[in-house]
Design a binder for these strands. Sequence first.
DNA 1: GATGAATGAGTCTTCATTCAT
DNA 2: GATGAATGAAGACTCATTCAT
Lengths: 206, 206, 206, 206
Amino acid sequence: MVRYKKSEEKQKMILYAAFQAVSELGFDSVTLQVIADYAKVSKGVVHYYFESKETVLIELLKWLTAKIYKKECASIELEKSAVKKLHAYISSAFVSPEKNRTFYRVYLDFLAKASRNPVYREINQQFYDNCNAIGKEIIQLGQKEGIFDINLSAEQTAPKIRAVIDGYLIQWLMMDRDDLHKFYREACLQTVISMLNNSSFFELRK
Amino acid sequence: MVRYKKSEEKQKMILYAAFQAVSELGFDSVTLQVIADYAKVSKGVVHYYFESKETVLIELLKWLTAKIYKKECASIELEKSAVKKLHAYISSAFVSPEKNRTFYRVYLDFLAKASRNPVYREINQQFYDNCNAIGKEIIQLGQKEGIFDINLSAEQTAPKIRAVIDGYLIQWLMMDRDDLHKFYREACLQTVISMLNNSSFFELRK
Amino acid sequence: MVRYKKSEEKQKMILYAAFQAVSELGFDSVTLQVIADYAKVSKGVVHYYFESKETVLIELLKWLTAKIYKKECASIELEKSAVKKLHAYISSAFVSPEKNRTFYRVYLDFLAKASRNPVYREINQQFYDNCNAIGKEIIQLGQKEGIFDINLSAEQTAPKIRAVIDGYLIQWLMMDRDDLHKFYREACLQTVISMLNNSSFFELRK
Amino acid sequence: MVRYKKSEEKQKMILYAAFQAVSELGFDSVTLQVIADYAKVSKGVVHYYFESKETVLIELLKWLTAKIYKKECASIELEKSAVKKLHAYISSAFVSPEKNRTFYRVYLDFLAKASRNPVYREINQQFYDNCNAIGKEIIQLGQKEGIFDINLSAEQTAPKIRAVIDGYLIQWLMMDRDDLHKFYREACLQTVISMLNNSSFFELRK
DNA sequence: GATGAATGAGTCTTCATTCAT
DNA sequence: GATGAATGAAGACTCATTCAT
């Protein structure tokens, strides 16, 4: 069957509607009817553009992680120094309470699914890989600049940055306090920087 | 009363069955029939002990987080120094690939729900508070011992420890590689220690 | 899952309701809701007793063909001579306009399905085999009695009897004229008898 | 008009596509999309040439039975004697395993529908009438030739020929064995001949 | 003439919940 | 206390039909 042919635009529209719907209601509670309602189309249209509900969700997550990654890329590209790039990266991750809430709600549903389903895990792995590429770039630049510990393996350290970002953002989401968003962003930045600066210190004192 | 006791035991049994079931299948896919099957009781029994499916899940998460917390408490109590307590705490959090997988799958489902539902959020907050109490105790002890940065607010820093632990464990879960479990535990420990040691450094260089 | 345990009676009731429903509306138009309505139970009950709609239909056809066969068996057992048994067999097949209509409508749906689906074909083959056993018995008895052509292979001739019966009953059904039922029964009987008597004649004149 | 002609051709094409589709999938499973796919046209075209799905099916069956009848007519016209015409008729009915399978699958679906729906029954009646005209012609010729029982009413006997043909072909279809096709054709021929030869015998011995 | 996007009614199926035994 | 039969609401999915282009 020839699908996806013409209106890729409409597909995107449906995905965005699904994103809003999932964010507000959660994976379990989102029905195709709800997605259709959010997209202001009939139920049949969703099926017309996507084979199944599962497909909608999978495409949603591909689209979403790709979008996040692109934004992060764009924001670090504007900066030159490692520290500024790191700032930019983390600021991009902590974009705003509203957007973080919307995204991380969906992302948590996604992670929960990914913990059991290889298809979702694969998509997340792609996201991780992309984020790690960013992390690696920043670490290596910082090492060249002499401000990050030269002994760190960029390869092994990059994932840790993402782990810390996600850890903080998830906790922030759970706190349900928008006013703490800035605090969490700073905390995250601090933790990452201390991680990149001081592993040698840690080794000495261990 | 003996009867009451027996009831309580059976309740626990059902909760444990629900835990296994949710871990394997996820919140969405778990039905009361499945829980009953895991518990080797009839479907009616589950309803006999719990008002509704929702109640089962809520009780499950109360029980689960309480259990995790107790284990963590027990493990740090055995140690005297701050560093050893921290080790014990993190080792307790990174108990084993199998147990971490089982727990964090459920916990992710839980967090996803909690991001929208105040009831679940409340339960998680209790868990966070408990964990933060542990964190605070360790930080303050370390500060007394002179090995942790004295300028850190224990109150504000304790949550960060949990954020880092969860961040690492979630990423580990996504990697689906049991052999990396140890690596993630060490990375987590390093990050936490560098966080506690070096905030002054960070301040200086910023 | 433990199904089919207790109320086999209710299963039969649902099958009978399905039989009536299919006969009146046809396979395509019969929904589980319709079957439930005919059985005067809720829609869920049908699913409780049968895995799927397909299962209902398959069981229906097993049950139906078994029932027809049993009746035919019972009717020929009462007779002693080959001709009388043949009469009984065909009379049993041409039981009454109402019952023939009800059964053959369903049976035609069944045959249509069986022409493409091995599962249904298998069930029909069982029915054919049973009918052929009846035919064989009659033919061999008639040959012993000296009234049927001794040169006929009972094995090869028995299926022909059923083919002729079905051919006539299907045509009768299409005519939609109850008053012709008797005529078709007699025509069927004649054709079968001439088939059993005269193959030698045919050979001679060919 | 050329336009009209083109239309007619396309209609035939769609009907033929529908025929193939129904034969392979059955009435229930055939959708307009499937028919369109088989005909290599868009879904809209089918609706352009036919009012509704039902119309497609009805026209299909008219077209199909007319086609079969024409072929049978053509084949008996080539022969002179009654026996040869009968041979030709039955050979035409038993044209080949492939074609019989294709046709009788559809025809069974058709009969199943006809058993409840007067519209389809009407079309089939037309087919029966046509077939009976052939049968009558053969019988009367045979009676003139002195090889068929002169006491037979051609009017009443002709339908029986078709009943026997259909009975055998349906059973053959159910056996799913192409190698038996020839056997069933011969058996059908024998049965019809014995039917036409020997009714007087039957009367005598009854 | 032809296309295929859009609609929404209708179907199967699942499952939490109720309740008679 | 315990069971599992019964219910029916709700969801995913299909598909004939319509209609703008």
